[in-house]
């Protein structure tokens, strides 16, 4: 199975895993990213492109399935306003053995940070609002998967 969602609704990790794992795969790996409350952050807003974000995530899921023998990929990214502790991104991958599932999960989270048109805006308790700057370290991590 392949599920790719861009959603403004809360991500239900247990329900997504139940759907994903219905095939009874030999090895499943997961990444759950949550909003951190560092520095008094009160809201994280994720802006997205109405067409390109979904397409970019689908391309990444297809790339992962072409690169590793995966039985299932679930890639769900939250957009809009969220608060600390909420799930912002969920990656689930499954294969017959752990190597493919673990590697594909790392590939997907690394690459979606540089390939998907998404922009984070942080709001803080003291009234500050700022757009998150892209990090060189993310670009370097994503580049590891090239070639």
């Amino acid at each position: 199975m392949r599920r790719v969602d861009v959603t403004s609704a809360a991500i239900d990790v247990a329900a997504a895993l139940a759907d994903h794992d219905a095939g009874g795969h030999g090895a499943s790996a997961s990444f759950v990213g949550r909003v951190r409350g560092d520095g008094g952050l009160t809201e994280l807003f994720l802006e997205h492109h109405p067409v390109m974000t979904q397409a970019a995530l689908e391309t990444l899921a297809n790339d992962a399935m072409a690169r590793w023998p995966l039985a299932a990929v679930t890639l769900i990214h939250r957009v809009g306003a969220m608060t600390p502790g909420e799930v912002i991104v969920l990656v689930l991958t499954s294969s017959a053995h752990r190597e493919a599932a673990l590697a594909a999960t790392a590939f997907l989270i690394d690459r979606l940070k540089t390939d998907a048109p998404l922009w984070k805006r942080e709001s803080f308790a003291d009234g500050r609002v700022q757009w998150v700057e892209a990090r060189d370290s993310d670009a370097r991590r994503a580049a590891v998967w090239e070639g």
């Binding site: 990213g33 492109h49 940070k113 998907a116 048109p117 998404l118 922009w119 757009w131 700057e133 892209a134």
Partner: peptide
């Protein structure tokens, strides 16, 4: 044409 900053998802 879409113009935007470097992306920061994930």
């Amino acid at each position: 044409v879409a113009l935007f900053p470097p992306v920061t998802g994930g």
